[in-house]
Design a protein around this nucleic acid. Structure first.
Length: 541
RNA sequence: GGGGCGAUAGCUCAGUCGGUUAGAGCAACGGACUCAUAAUCCGUCGGUCCUGGGUUCAAGUCCCAGUCGCCCUACCA
């Protein structure tokens, strides 16, 4: 076994024809939180996202706009899909487009190799074709005809009989991989997660797999088969390969990169595309003799008003609608914290507004303010030398240590939700600590302040505030992957960069112990991390 | 039709291997406090764990049947 040299995580490549909505953003945020956490551990990480640009839908939309499909895709990528990454503050390492030359070349080499090795055969695809729709219909798109079409199958849309047509296509013998896939799911329960998704995939494969038609000759917006330019590759075969082509598949000059990064540790997918990733993708890799990804993780849907988001029902929400009101940190925090990863979750403006104020503004943000204000008021902003520790201080430090351990374990089981919950115990415990220790009362005790009103180093007041500041240092590190802007602001408040270096360079493990900030580091109050939002627009939408 | 998942407090959700009196957050109500962003802290209120059977010393948890909801059932992605 090779050393685990690089944590490689992907989002799906988003279909460029869609407008980005918070469902896409949710996947991207989860991916970004997970990868930022691994980076905070100081691991090597590769985070890939991108766009899927081929297929008949893009071609048709482009034609209807009177532009070439490539131009249409270019426009959508430039105006929608790249900007949304900034909106979300996503730190992806690469962005692949299926129209990139690197991808097209790799895909052609890959498919040629499968062809040469006898993994592709030519056959007939037979299907029910609706002339009016100009496409093959699935059994679910058909219904029994009535009246003059009695006894025939008709298209649900047009109510006209469908024709049985056949087309010469190239096929991938997916049916041969059923047993191997079932062995894979059995030997590696972590391959498909969560367990509900795994059950669904196993059930599907057990029903028996059919060979997959992997080429189309009815339109040409796709990657040409190298040995038969009258066919383009089926979009899913094309799309899935992005995960490998982006890191050097079939590129002689990038073999070091490929062997270092591949296979992926985690492919995050929405549950609608689980099957392609958990069945077809590993079969393709098995055929090619390539290592398999370790985990396909299917997350749930965001529900709005109890229903899956949908453009037709006007429940599709653009991420910017939310970040414009609450900011990208709050967006990231909310969807990580409020929706158990792997389950469906409800979104509402009332809920995000409530959590923003209660948890970010009142909980964490206010904690930072009160600590910074007291260090300023009693010690002129210079962190004093602490005195003797009591159980209260060691107890709080134990909370931090537990938070780190629990959060790390949660990240390893791909549960960013639980990780944030674990970290939040430190926010709450530190607020309780201050309330119980009452530093504002301690400041009035004899010996804590000198004649000029300045706090005394080594006193009880100093101990309390240093401990609280240490808790904030831990929180800045632990929340940097989730809310990078607020964490950086807090790091600035704590004078962290001057004292300890860049926030990104602070290992997660350092958050477990209260011995980081040097004495006399300058703590400044700064602006609130999360100003309260009273605007009615936040909860009246 | 076949398969998967879910139903727990007013709302959003946890609940591990079957094991004490079923938990949290929000909301509501009461109190404490004044460092802080009218914030923080403590307490109270709040339950037919969807229904009906079954297994068990013991069931939110396991089994069977049912009700309701969502999803998948292969070449649009």
């Amino acid at each position: 076994m090779a050393q685990p040299s690089c944590f490689y995580l992907t989002t799906p490549i988003y279909y460029v024809n869609d407008a980005p909505h918070i469902g896409h953003a949710y996947t991207t945020v989860a991916a970004d939180v997970l990868t930022r956490w691994h980076r905070q551990r100081q691991e090597e990480v590769w985070f890939l996202t991108g766009t899927d640009e081929h297929g008949e839908k893009v071609l048709r939309t482009a034609e209807s706009k009177g532009v070439a499909p490539q131009a249409w895709a270019d426009k959508l990528v430039a105006e929608e899909w790249l900007p949304v990454l900034d909106t979300l503050d996503a730190a992806n390492d690469d962005f692949i487009r299926t129209t990139d030359e690197r991808h097209e070349v790799a895909v052609q080499r890959f498919i040629q190799r499968l062809y040469d090795d006898g993994h592709i055969y030519k056959g007939k695809f037979e299907g029910q074709y609706c002339v009016a729709c100009e496409e093959y219909k699935l059994p679910g798109d058909l219904e029994d005809g009535t009246g003059e079409y009695e006894g025939q199958q008709v298209c649900k849309i047009h109510g006209r009989p469908v024709e049985t047509l056949s087309e010469e296509n190239y096929f991938f013998p997916l049916s041969q991989y059923g047993d191997k896939l079932l062995e894979l799911y059995e030997a590696h329960p972590e391959f498909v997660q969560p367990a509900s998704a795994r059950n669904e995939v196993i059930g599907f494969v057990k029903q028996g797999l059919r060979d997959l038609s992997i080429s189309r000759s009815s339109f040409d917006w796709g990657i040409e088969l190298p040995w038969d330019s009258s066919h383009v590759l089926y979009v899913w075969f094309d799309a899935l390969l992005n995960y490998a082509s982006a890191v050097g598949l079939e590129d002689e000059s990038k073999q070091d990169e490929f062997s270092r990064i591949w296979p992926a540790d985690v492919h995050l997918v929405g549950k609608d595309i689980l099957r392609f990733h958990a069945v077809i993708w590993p079969a393709m890799l098995l055929a090619a003799g390539l290592p398999l990804p370790k985990t396909i993780f299917a997350h749930g849907w965001l529900l709005v008003g109890g229903e899956k988001m949908s453009k037709t029902k006007l429940t599709g929400i653009h991420p910017r609608e939310i970040t414009d009101v609450f900011g990208s940190d709050a967006f990231r925090y909310y969807f990580t914290r409020a929706v158990q990863f792997g389950h469906d979750g409800s979104f509402s403006w009332e809920d995000i507004a409530a959590r923003y104020n209660a948890e970010l503004a009142n909980g964490w943000g206010n904690l930072a303010s009160r600590v910074a204000a007291m260090v300023g008021k009693y010690f002129g902003g210079a962190l004093p030398t602490p005195g003797a520790l009591t159980d209260a201080e060691t107890d709080l430090e134990a909370v931090a240590a537990r938070a780190v351990a629990d959060a790390e374990a949660a990240i390893d089981r791909i549960s960013p939700t639980d990780a944030v919950a674990a970290v939040w115990t430190l926010v709450e415990a530190t607020n309780v600590y201050l309330t119980e220790q009452e530093p504002w009362k301690v400041a009035k005790l004899p010996g804590e302040l000198d004649e000029s009103g300045a706090g005394a180093g080594g006193g009880r007041l100093a101990t309390i505030l240093v401990t609280a500041a240490e808790a904030l240092r831990s929180l800045a590190i632990l929340l940097n992957p989730v809310t990078p802007q607020a964490a950086q602001n807090l790091w600035t408040i704590l004078g962290g960069t001057e004292a300890l270096g860049e926030l990104d360079k602070q290992p997660v493990a350092d958050a477990a112990a209260f011995n980081g900030l040097p004495q006399h580091v300058t703590i400044t109050k700064g602006a609130p991390l999360f100003p309260r939002i009273e605007d009615e627009s936040a909860d009246s939408k």
